[in-house]
Computed example of a mutant assay.
Amino acid sequence: MNDLFQSVPFIAGTFFLAGTVKGLIGLGLPTVAMGLLGLMMPSVEAAALLLVPSLVTNVWQLFAGSHLGVLLRRLWTMMLGVAAGTFAASGLIAGTAAHAATAALGATLALYGILGLLKPRLQLPQKAEPWAGPLVGTATGLVTGATGVFVVPAVPYLNSLGLGRDHLVQALGLSFTFSTLALAAGLAWHGALSIEVAGVSSLALLPALAGMIVGGWLRARVEPETFRRCFFVGLLVLGCELAWRGMV
């Protein structure tokens, strides 16, 4: 735990950068934070540190729009799958196979980076949602429980539903909020969420919010699409590095 407190400057910088990314392009805080923290500490510790900044910023995103009721009625089965899958698989990230968890985290980040660069134009017919939603939610939960990253396959799936921009942003906030709460419950169930880590996670909220403010300021001054490409290239490189570390 002393090592954790000695790493506070690195943790603060990581969450400031992750918050800046989220403020600029609307996503990426958990993904960036897990990837960078995973270079310095076990995935389970990184996931625990992520909880408070992720929860607060995603609840903020969730309630920023006026479509919550509509989205809940449409996506509730997916959210149940996210919660159930995350809780069921949380023993993987909280277990003793640290190298396997690091490799899985790296592979997930690399896959997300590739998907972000390719930007596949997926479109799912609405009649498929009753069966696709629970499957995607459960798959997202299993990935979250194993790696602490909750973007795959939830983000590509939500992008395929043809939601308007405001609906999509709020739907992402909904999915990420369910993932964060389920991950917190799973880590607590497996004894991997200590008061000390929760305290550092709470402190990490401040640089994350500061980063989001800076990212919002930058949004009006830089080309978001160029930044998005750099972001996904960075995720791909970071993911490959983590996957390699986990395998050697």
Rank of each mutant, 00 (worst) to 15 (best):
L206V: 13
L209A: 08
Q170I: 12
D166T: 15
T180A: 05
P30L: 02
W60N: 15
M247G: 15
A100P: 02
G173E: 06
F178W: 12
H190E: 11
G199Q: 08
L163S: 10
S202G: 14
S43H: 03
V44N: 03
P53V: 13
V237P: 00
T96P: 07
G191K: 07
L203C: 12
F231K: 03
A128L: 14
A97D: 14
G141D: 02
P42W: 07
H167T: 12
P130M: 10
A188T: 08
A132T: 11
T226N: 14
L17D: 04
V197F: 06
A107E: 06
R165N: 13
S175P: 09
R165Y: 09
T140S: 12
A94R: 01
H167M: 14
I11E: 01
A243I: 10
S160D: 01
A88Y: 08
A154H: 05
L71D: 03
L49K: 08
T177N: 09
L68P: 05
G141N: 04
A89S: 10
F232I: 04
E129I: 09
L37Q: 08
T86N: 08
A101R: 02
E241W: 14
V70Q: 15
G145I: 06
A48W: 01
L235G: 01
G173W: 05
D3V: 12
E45F: 08
N159K: 11
S43W: 00
M41S: 14
L71G: 05
G186P: 06
V214P: 00
T14L: 03
G239F: 02
A192E: 04
L183W: 02
G26V: 11
T96N: 13
L111R: 09
I93P: 00
A98V: 14
E223R: 12
G186F: 08
G91F: 09
V21Q: 05
V8N: 05
L17Y: 07
T31S: 05
R165L: 11
V70I: 13
V200T: 10
P224T: 09
A198N: 06
A198I: 10
V169D: 10
G65K: 08
A101S: 13
T180Q: 02
L71Y: 06
G246Y: 07
F10G: 07
S66L: 14
P9Y: 09
L203H: 09
N58D: 15
V56I: 15
H99K: 14
T226M: 13
G246H: 08
Q123V: 10
G116H: 06
V52G: 08
L242H: 04
Y157G: 01
L168G: 11
V32L: 07
G145H: 06
L24A: 11
Q170A: 13
N2Y: 08
A97S: 12
A12C: 11
V248R: 15
A33H: 06
G19Q: 04
A33Y: 06
A171P: 06
P224S: 10
P120E: 07
